[in-house]
Design a protein around this nucleic acid. Structure first.
Lengths: 211, 211
DNA sequence: CTATGATTGGACCATGCAGTCCAATGAGCA
DNA sequence: TGCTCATTGGACTGCATGGTCCAATCATAG
C-alpha cells in the first residue's frame, strides 16, 4: 500500500492524478475496463504516457484499483446524509431517491461498484478483495439502518439485519442489470418496490424456512 | 450434395460449429468476452482460424451472439420441468434448487446471461437486443407461474405478476453479483430468501405506493 | 543562482489480437 | 472419374495496446 499522500506528491501532482482517476472512471463506466485503453485516458486528460506510469507505477491494474476506490467513496458520499440516518421510513425514502438520482446522473443504468465487481472479481484478486470491503461497508451501513428500524418496531425484530441489507443491495444491483437491456428504469423500480414491501412487512410468516 | 439442413451446413459442420460455441461459452464464463481471444478458442477446439470465420462470418461478434443464444437456451432448459409448472410452492422450491444447482455446476457464482448482459449491453446493440428478448422470455415464464399461484390464492392477486417476476430475477442476479467477491453463496441465499418471503406474504400492506 | 526532485512529453518496443487469404482435403454426386 | 462445394490448415497482415525509456521542464529550498 503506497501511503504517499504526503511523500513526493505536490499539489499539482495530486490534481493531475485525480484528473486521471476521474477521467478513467468515466470511461470505464461506459466502455468497461477492457474497453478503456491507456491512450484513451491519455487523450481525455491531456497527459502523457509517462504521467500515467508516474502516478500509477503498477500500470493499468493500479489505475483501475484507484478508480475502484474513488468510485466507492463517491457512491457512499452520494447516499449521505440519509445513509447515516435511516431511522424513519421518510429517511429510507430519501435515501432511495438520492441513490436513484445518483445512478440516473451517471447516464447509464449501472452501478460503478457493481460493474467493476462483475468485471474484476474473476480476474484481479487484489481489486476483488478491495471491492469486497466496499460491499461490506455498504451492507454494514444499511444493516445499521435496519437495526434502527427494528428498535422502533418498524421492522420485524426477528429479521437478520445483515441478510436483509444484503437482499436490498441485491435488489438494487439486479434491478440495475435488468434495466440495462430495457434502457428503462422500471426493472429497478420493480425490484426496489418489492424490497420495500418486504421491509414494511410486519412479522408474519417469517422466512419460509430454508437453510 | 445431400444432408442439407440449412445454409449449407453438413452434419460434421454443425458439430464443429457447436463445439466452437460451447468452448467459447466456457471460456467467456470465466474470462469474460474481452478476455477470450479467438486464438484461445482455436486452441481449445483444435480448429483453425479459417473455421472460426467459416462458421461465424461476422467474426468474434457473431460468435459471441451465438454463445449468448446457446447460453439462453441452456439456462431455460436447466430450469425445466419446474419452470413450466410453478403451480405449487413445492414446484417453486424445486425450481429454485434446480437453478442454484445449475449455477453451482458452472463453477463460478455467475449467470451466463447476466454476465453477458453486463458486458454487452453498453457496447453491442445487436447482442443487447437479443439478450433483452431472453430476459423477456424468462420473466414471462416466471410471471405465468405467479399467475398460477394467484389463481389458487397462494399469492396476492393484487400483485403485478410481471413486476413480481422481475424482482425475483433481480434478486437472483443481484445475489449472484454479491456472491462473487464473497466467494460464497450466502448473499444469493439471503436475496432469494427475502424474495421468497415476499412471495409468501399474503395481501397485506401491498406495494408501498411509489412512483 | 543552482541543485534536487517532481512533473511532463513523446518516441519507441514487443506483444497480442481480429481478421484475411490461398491452398489443400474430403465427401457426395453424375 | 471428374465436378462441386463444404471443410480444414495455417501463414500472414495491420493495428491497437500496455509498457519502457530518455530527456526536457518546472518548482523550490538553500
Amino acid at each position: 500500500m503506497s501511503e504517499r499522500t504526503t511523500g513526493g506528491l505536490t499539489e499539482k501532482g495530486r490534481a493531475t492524478r485525480q484528473r486521471i482517476v476521474e477521467a478513467t472512471a468515466l470511461r470505464i463506466l461506459d466502455a468497461g475496463v477492457d474497453g478503456t485503453s491507456l491512450d484513451d485516458v491519455r487523450a481525455a486528460t491531456l497527459t502523457s504516457k509517462s504521467q500515467l506510469f508516474h502516478y500509477f507505477p503498477g500500470g493499468k491494474a493500479e489505475l483501475v484499483r484507484a478508480v475502484a476506490q474513488w468510485e466507492g467513496e463517491q457512491l457512499l458520499a452520494a447516499q449521505e446524509p440519509h445513509l447515516s440516518d435511516l431511522s424513519t421510513w421518510e429517511s429510507w425514502e430519501a435515501w432511495r431517491q438520492g441513490l436513484e438520482a445518483y445512478y440516473l446522473g451517471l447516464g447509464r443504468w449501472a452501478c460503478p461498484i457493481g460493474s467493476l465487481t462483475a468485471q474484476m472479481a474473476a480476474t484481479d484478486a487484489e481489486t476483488a478483495a478491495f471491492l469486497r470491503t466496499a460491499w461490506t461497508t455498504w451492507r454494514t451501513r444499511l444493516a445499521a439502518g435496519v437495526r434502527r428500524m427494528q428498535a422502533t418496531g418498524s421492522i420485524d425484530p426477528a429479521a437478520d439485519p445483515d441478510r436483509l441489507a444484503t437482499s436490498v443491495l441485491a435488489a438494487i444491483q439486479g434491478g440495475l442489470l435488468l434495466s440495462q437491456p430495457e434502457r428503462a428504469s422500471w426493472p429497478l423500480e420493480a425490484a426496489l418496490d418489492t424490497a420495500w414491501a418486504t421491509l414494511h412487512t410486519p412479522a408474519t410468516a417469517g422466512t419460509p424456512t430454508r437453510s
